[in-house]
Amino acid sequence: MDENAPQGTQPPVPPTEGLDRRAELSEFLRTRRARLQPHDVGLPSYGRHRRVPGLRREELAQLAGVSVAYYTRLEQGNGRNVSAEVLDAIARALRLTDAEHAHLTHLAKPAAHKKKRVPRAQQLRPAVAQLLDAMDGVPAYVVGRRSDILGWNRLAAALFGDWGRLPAEERNWARLVFLDEHMRELFADTWAQKASDIVSFLRMDAGCYPNDPLLSALVGELSVKSEEFRSLWATHDVREKGHGVKRLRHPLVGELTLSFETMSLSDGAEQSLVTYHAEPGSPSAEGLRLLASWGVDAVDSSRHEVS
């Protein structure tokens, strides 16, 4: 792992109010309802001109088996006394994914998640740092809350850029993806998906930690500086970190098609180990091998240049 990777508390930022949980709940339900049409859920559609996109409140209430007044109060952000059974029914009616269902529960019943109200300082365990160092042929890094990059190995630095040269507060995937032109060039035609994924992960964090001032400050900064971020944030899409394929266009080794895997660390620190690998014997595998042989010297030299 790069010795310049942050090992403790993130640098302080000016205090910022947290996100408005009631507004988040209201907008999340409204956007989920707007994406469904009556025919999607087996309801008749009366008339060609509907005043609202997607399902009406009364249609959603009918599907969930609750009164229109009850659902309206919930969509207005008042979920204080809502039961888990009602949330389950609404989640089924809205056809929410598991991640969306969890997000709805966090927003509607924050009292059930008191332990998550005050985020702990993010620290990388020494054993995890050693594991990163041992993964010589695989780009790997650890990401924490708010998409903060907490640690990485040499090949990750050679692939994505030398994060050790950045101030600690800028070692963050959301800032890099939306504010660093190098990332647009690197992710090429998969940049839009990467951007969407990052915003969806931040939305999940917002549901768990609506009072996190660092998260609120990050969202505020990106909303001011990036129109694309503002547009994606307004969709209220959420999803868990997972696996897939990314096509990268590296300035030194050219096109790379890499599979990535995200593995949650099991100590409750809400950190994930992310690895990238190429199909054995493929041109991308050769590209990674060349990058590794170049990247070790380059990253080693930079490690002595950063204070």
Rank of each mutant, 00 (worst) to 15 (best):
H103N: 02
L214G: 08
L179F: 03
E228C: 04
S26I: 05
L288T: 00
E3Q: 13
V13K: 07
L288H: 04
L256D: 00
W233C: 03
V52Y: 03
S231R: 14
Q76A: 09
L25H: 04
L43K: 12
L107K: 01
N4H: 13
K246V: 11
R95V: 08
V82A: 13
H39G: 06
R249F: 05
H250K: 11
G268M: 11
N78T: 08
E240H: 15
F178D: 00
T16P: 03
L36A: 09
P12Y: 03
P167F: 13
I198T: 15
E255A: 13
S284T: 02
N81Y: 09
L94Q: 04
S264R: 14
V86L: 05
L256C: 09
H39S: 12
R35G: 01
D297F: 07
Y141F: 15
E59V: 03
V224L: 14
G254M: 10
R247A: 01
V177H: 07
P53L: 06
Y276N: 02
S259C: 08
R230S: 15
V118Q: 13
K115L: 12
A298D: 15
E58P: 09
L252N: 08
P44D: 14
F229D: 01
Q271L: 07
V274P: 02
I90E: 05
N4C: 09
V296Y: 04
S147K: 01
P213T: 07
Y276L: 08
N81K: 10
A108H: 04
A127N: 11
T16R: 15
E24Y: 05
S266D: 12
D297S: 14
D189H: 15
A134R: 13
A192G: 04
G137I: 01
A168H: 08
G54K: 07
P12S: 13
E27I: 00
